[in-house]
């Protein structure tokens, strides 16, 4: 097992109170597996991604554990986490276009970053990796402003995986791109896994169709909790959770060229997480809901590798 997350709880401190953005999430990611993490904005997928590498200032680790390759990650301890960052867990952020220091040449920035982590820059390796994503070595002598958005994104992908981390978190990295670039980026990421630059990956997106193309397993979250987790094919062809079924039905046709549709085709909106209602959180929008749903549904394994949190399956 590469990654094991158990009952993870993370909350946001706001002046109006504590917002439970992640409310007890458990799952595993195997060696070599790409886990696609999907859901509407605010479902907790980005919070989950951040929890695995760096909680931002307002987030608090409220409970649960994260284990990577048998070692527990000290996710609530910013300093202790530093030992794991970059080497064991790495990140391709949502903001890749602006992730590079604008006033440093890229090569120099990478060298300074590595030196600050006590690593030496293997220039040949860096250039090979750049070549693998179709970038000339000259980009190292450029400033970020001289590169196109797509080029910057690829540079960030190469830099983030330079130390061959065990786990890579790719957070909404395609949302700013056009459809054809999205697919190229997704393919490049899968290529990183195939080449062994990263062992396993969590691919966060709101684009179910794109996830289905590269992920081995898909996990759908709703209102800070796991709704359904299943192999990619199963998830697309035989979803069990009513929410996932609606998501999949809302897709035009998986595999169609114009598949970049957002998950907005469902009436209503998720409950506020400041003071979430008891019971199933999808109850308000669910066509199947009845009185039984006033109790929180447990996550059950309905088939091998297929987990669903719903009373109605």
């Amino acid at each position: 097992m590469s990654l094991t997350v158990t009952d993870l709880r993370v909350s946001y401190q706001t002046l109006r109170g504590e917002v439970r953005a992640l409310d007890g999430v458990s799952f595993t990611v195997a060696d070599g597996e790409i886990l696609g993490l999907a859901g509407e904005s605010g479902c907790g997928k980005t919070t989950l991604g951040k929890s695995l590498i760096r909680l931002d200032g307002r987030m608090r680790h409220a409970g649960g554990t994260v284990e990577l390759d048998g070692r527990e990650l000290p996710i609530g301890d910013d300093r202790a986490m530093n030992a794991f960052r970059f080497r064991e867990v790495s990140l391709v952020p949502q903001y890749s276009m602006s992730a590079l220091n604008p006033t440093r040449r890229i090569g120099r920035m990478v060298a300074e970053l590595l030196r600050s982590r006590g690593e030496t820059l293997d220039r040949a390796k860096l250039e090979t990796r750049l070549g693998q994503v179709g970038l000339p070595r000259e980009v190292l002598d450029r400033y970020p402003i001289e590169l196109s958005g797509g080029m910057k994104q690829r540079v960030v992908m190469v830099v983030s995986t330079l130390l061959d981390p065990s786990l890579l978190i790719a957070d909404e990295i395609t949302s700013a791109l056009d459809v054809s670039t999205q697919q190229a980026v997704a393919r490049a990421l899968a290529g990183f896994r195939d080449a062994g630059h990263v062992r396993s990956m969590v691919f966060i997106t709101h684009d179910l169709a794109l996830t289905a193309r590269i992920a081995d397993t898909i996990m759908v979250m709703y209102a800070g909790m796991l709704a359904e987790k299943a192999p990619a094919k199963t998830m697309v062809e035989q979803p069990r959770h009513p929410y996932t079924r609606m998501l999949v039905d809302a897709l035009p046709e998986v595999g169609a060229r114009h598949a970049g549709r957002r998950l907005t085709g469902i009436a209503g909106s998720p409950p506020a997480l400041l003071d979430p209602p008891p019971g199933c959180r999808f109850r308000e929008r669910c066509p199947l809901a009845d009185d039984g749903c006033a109790e929180r549904p447990p996550v059950t394994e309905v088939a091998p590798g297929h987990h669903v949190a719903c009373w109605k399956v």
């Binding site: 530093n82 790495s90 960030v156 983030s160």
Partner: peptide, 8 residues
């Protein structure tokens, strides 16, 4: 943020 996420 990116540098911090990479443990710089």
């Amino acid at each position: 943020s990116y540098l911090a996420a990479l443990g710089a």
